[in-house]
Design a protein around this nucleic acid. Sequence first.
DNA 1: GTTACAGATGGCATCGATAACATAGGCTCT
DNA 2: AGAGCCTATGTTATCGATGCCATCTGTAAC
Lengths: 338, 338
Amino acid sequence: MTGATERPARQPSMTDVARTAGVSAQTVSRTLRDSPNVNPETRKRVLAAVEQLGYRFNNAARVLSSGRSHTIGLVLLQSGGYYSRSAVTAGVEAAAGEEGYAVSIATIARLDTGLMERSLSKLADQGVDGIVIAVPLISVTQKMEDITRDIPTVTLDGSRTASARVLGIDQKEAGRIATRHLLDLGHRQVWHVSGPDEWIEARQRRQGWQECLAAAGVEAPPPLEGDWSPDSGYRQGQVLAMIPDVTAVFAASDEMAFGVIRALREGGRSVPADVSIVSVDDIELAAYCAPPLTTVRQDFYRSGAAAVALLLRQADAGETLVTASLSVRASTAPPRSR
Amino acid sequence: MTGATERPARQPSMTDVARTAGVSAQTVSRTLRDSPNVNPETRKRVLAAVEQLGYRFNNAARVLSSGRSHTIGLVLLQSGGYYSRSAVTAGVEAAAGEEGYAVSIATIARLDTGLMERSLSKLADQGVDGIVIAVPLISVTQKMEDITRDIPTVTLDGSRTASARVLGIDQKEAGRIATRHLLDLGHRQVWHVSGPDEWIEARQRRQGWQECLAAAGVEAPPPLEGDWSPDSGYRQGQVLAMIPDVTAVFAASDEMAFGVIRALREGGRSVPADVSIVSVDDIELAAYCAPPLTTVRQDFYRSGAAAVALLLRQADAGETLVTASLSVRASTAPPRSR
DNA sequence: GTTACAGATGGCATCGATAACATAGGCTCT
DNA sequence: AGAGCCTATGTTATCGATGCCATCTGTAAC
């Protein structure tokens, strides 16, 4: 009570541990980093001291002296595709965590090069060792180039900068699988409600659809563009409902598909009796809304993890690491044979 | 080509800037941190030098010397409630960004105290200045207490530790609003499909439901517990479908509600003609699946932002900052008057 | 019995920014 | 005019871990 109880309450440092263990700070450092040349006996003493003092290493100091932060930045888009975004984030974080990396996020409110630049700067300021861009940016500015030249960067499904590598999810494949399924059911023509044109995902899915139709000798009708939201699907669905001979629709996302379905039904078409619909994502709700959706699932968690592997390992910039598979449910059927 | 072109390629440091601007490093530091006592003239010179050299401050060094990292940690649960998680994340990141803070995330795969401890340790190791726990943890371990004693922490809808403050979202209110709506429509009894009992959200929504029924003099039937997934809603819906006099159901999340609806329909009940359903969340799809869902919306983006404000400002640990509002759509109707 | 060399450890400078203190003018007040 | 103070700036020590080099002890090689 006289002040003798006073404690500095400072976190113990490596020097403290060294003192307790009766070795030098350098040895403590080596022990904690699994350097090869440490006597097992010494190591034990050091670890005991760490335990006893509740030592926790100071990341900032480590970064400052080693030059590497063991943090990777993740750039996300705030809107659109809640599901895939969450899955990508989880995959990135898990893979990074396993390698001892932390993940720092920067979200941008919408696709905009200015916002993108600011986010990259922010991450660069934090001294991240690498960046995963999970935003389908298409145009790349000088400033972005500058940053990605200094920091290893992997773009998930976006444009390639001079130095950023791109991890492709084969979105074309998704488009092809969906379209193929409809053609196999006997439909003669497949309409498409696409995502916004600035999204690479959207473009590629559309390409897959076009190619598949072309391969079948069918001329593709003009695609109807949405913005991933159910509402945009609904509006394009109203358009489709006015076209008499539509029997099959490929929607670029589950959420838009539900919008399309609603509009078609309000327009007097039955799904799947009159019109079949396939989409992409396989969100959890796809199986539970009415009708259960036939949809192409892609493993975004895996693609997040793969992006990290690519970043840290300098692994092959493999073009396609993520596969797509079709979940057939009740939104598709053969065309009415009339 | 003779080596004269060689550049160290090192990032310029504050000293470099100082040299270029003809001032001391300290003055540069003061300028960049908006210290009051800097001559406008000097400031201009410094900023020019910064611009010219493309100077970018070294975060690690700043952390090391100032002791503050300007980073806050965000703990998320990987599964369950994609929507609210994304919204919370965005809110946290936006609010933190405005205050000049970065956000580092740590996700845990499931509700588990061990995983939770590890995540907190990880964030503590990174030297975060504060932590937002967006995981509804209920039991708190000694280790968690230790960490939250050293680092300011705000829990969004979770248990209070000795030192962590809690930002309450009034989930009870959501339960009350939903139940009230059904009673107002004329239903005599309201069943409840709840979230998992370990989630505070789930408990509170259930309490709101119970209190509202109690206030109306109705004895609450036993709640049916789900895990937020559509599938769990479906299974509990099958139970409800076997009970003859069910006319109104309050589901604790939109996703479960869709599962319930599907099961009820398969069991021969029409929604909303035979059974009305209200849920909570108002995800985007709520309006587009069949039937459009009557649901209680809560603003998770705002609550994420509020958590950050609470953390950084030491603002009032106000109990309820986030309000709930009802979106009435087509899954509810007055009971069949027979 | 030197020499050579690997293993184990310590000493010291260093990373870059900042806090704390020091200094030098210029101004106000009595 | 001198005390007192505020403004603008420089100097120095420091944060904690690590890289590099030095040192010391065995021990294998010649």
